[in-house]
């Protein structure tokens, strides 16, 4: 790995400002500098409105920064547009959403293989990989169910399976346990932790959940759009 690509993410003086006039202007991120290495299991925490979601949006390329440089594996995300950015997300990033966001008209199997189809995987590859990831998240036998036929925890597991199906380098997860009870949340975090260790996939969460915070290798604390604390292996309890 070259020195330049030592970090998976590298944010230099990144700011995100909404609104143009002085009255409507909101600084969501204020001069953020952050480096995230490969294989991290990082939690971004902070109160509501602290900029967690904005930071994840920028890291995933769903939104762009107003100022500063965002590099993913050495590539400047702000230089990417349209199809290139879509392909980049497809090839490198897995996303897990708070409200699962499965495609309601597709079955569990189809939801998971959708991202693999986007990547051009063959039917045989897809079939084998879908079976593998569904086994890993504990959803064997539920392949042909539609999302509405599953519990919240099961739906979030499908979302995890979908996120890891293409073996991306990074999984970005926004409050993944927010809609789950503590038992389901704990199981989900354990599953993700195992995947992190097994595949060295980098996990970055925004969360309020102490279960995730407990298990995170690194905590980044945001307040009013600024990083107020960045610590390794800290236990918050």
């Amino acid at each position: 790995m070259s020195e330049q690509n030592k970090y998976l993410f590298e944010l230099q003086n990144v700011s995100k400002i909404y609104g143009e006039s002085a009255e409507t202007k909101v600084i969501a991120l204020d001069n953020i500098n952050l480096k995230i290495e490969f294989g991290e299991f990082t939690s971004i925490v902070g109160p509501s409105g602290s900029g967690k979601s904005t930071l994840l949006n920028i890291l995933s390329g769903l939104d762009s920064s107003s100022k500063g440089l965002v590099k993913l594996n050495g590539k400047d995300l702000s230089q990417m547009r349209g199809a290139e950015l879509a392909d980049f997300r497809r090839d490198h990033i897995g996303l897990i959403f708070q409200s699962y966001n499965l495609i309601p008209v597709l079955t569990v199997k189809e939801n998971v293989e959708y991202v693999m189809i986007l990547k051009g995987a063959s039917a045989a590859e897809r079939s084998a990989r879908v079976a593998e990831v569904l086994r890993e998240v504990g959803l064997e036998g539920k392949e042909n169910r539609f999302p509405k036929e599953l519990s919240g925890g099961q739906q979030q597991r499908v979302a995890v399976a979908r996120a890891i199906a293409t073996k991306p380098e990074i999984i970005l997860a926004d409050e993944p346990t927010a809609n789950l009870d503590s038992k389901m949340g704990t199981e989900l975090v354990e599953t993700m932790k195992q995947l992190n260790e097994k595949y060295q996939t980098t996990f970055i969460f925004s969360t309020h959940d102490t279960i995730i915070m407990d298990r995170a290798k690194r905590l980044v604390v945001l307040k009013d759009g600024k990083i107020v604390e960045d610590s390794l292996r800290r236990q918050l309890m």
Partner: peptide, 16 residues
């Protein structure tokens, strides 16, 4: 619209 956002977030191109 939210779903179309999800599809594109997953890497679906606009053309698709």
């Amino acid at each position: 619209m939210y779903e179309f956002g999800v599809l594109q977030a997953l890497g679906t191109r606009k053309l698709m």
